[in-house]
Amino acid sequence: MPILTFLNTLFSRLGAFPTHVIREMGKIAIFSLKGFGFIFSYPLQISKITKQVYFIGAQSIFVIILTGTFTGMVLGLQGYYTLVKFGSEGLLGVAVALTLIRELGPVLAAIMVIGRAGSAMAAEIGIMRISEQIDALHTMDINPIRFLISPKIAAAIISLPLLTAMFDVVGIYGGYITGSVLLGINPGAYFSRIESNVMMKDITGGFIKAVVFAIVVATICCYKGYYVHLREEGFGARGVSMATTSAVVFSCVLVLMVDYVLTSFLL
């Protein structure tokens, strides 16, 4: 009998973690589907979505320009010194552009949005949960997912591809500053190589990634805030702070993981 008890405990402990992970994944999937589905429910929440586009998109422009410029510049610098060894510095433009359009643009724009808007979403919804504001919505028969989450997901889907595009363009000009202005590559060669080598498929792939990242970021950040009261550790303000941290970390990791999966399909 002690052996049976031991085995029972062993397997239940071993199984607890995967079960928890699968349950969480299921909950996130349902939450995401509901949030996405309610975007199209009537009446459309145009005004709320517009406000969120301003918050997630417009207010992130400065940080995107800043990070985009320096990412492009550093890519230009690193790329130049690598390519010059092979005498192919003329390919710098296309190297910078493809790296940005295919990978760094969507990923870094998503990470910037997580840092600037995702953490704010998790904290805002978490505070609404612990101060019973979400319960108040329930009592008024207002669906909190439709009212709070859907506009954020919709706004992220609209904003992130635009921010990615901005990041790409600014990054390409950043590469131009280092490559052509500072290191002397012919500007015509820099841009003409981009024009001839960047395919529509690359751009579409970048945008697909941006849309998927938008759903991932908005869903995870809102989910962590929405269920802050079900956390096993950390309640109240501490719970919200832990949920915000976990939202940022989890969504960053997930963006990189999803990026790998998408890349393997898109290539």
Binding site: I127, S131, E132, Q133, D135, A136, T139, M140, I142
Partner: peptide, 26 residues
């Protein structure tokens, strides 16, 4: 209707919007 112990007012909305919410939404 439910009157919460801690009021549960929407802190990012004005007083007017708080009171109007059940009417605007439903």
């Amino acid at each position: 209707s439910y009157v919460f112990q801690g009021n549960a007012l929407f802190d990012s909305m004005t007083v007017f919007d708080n009171v109007a919410l059940p009417l605007t939404e439903k």
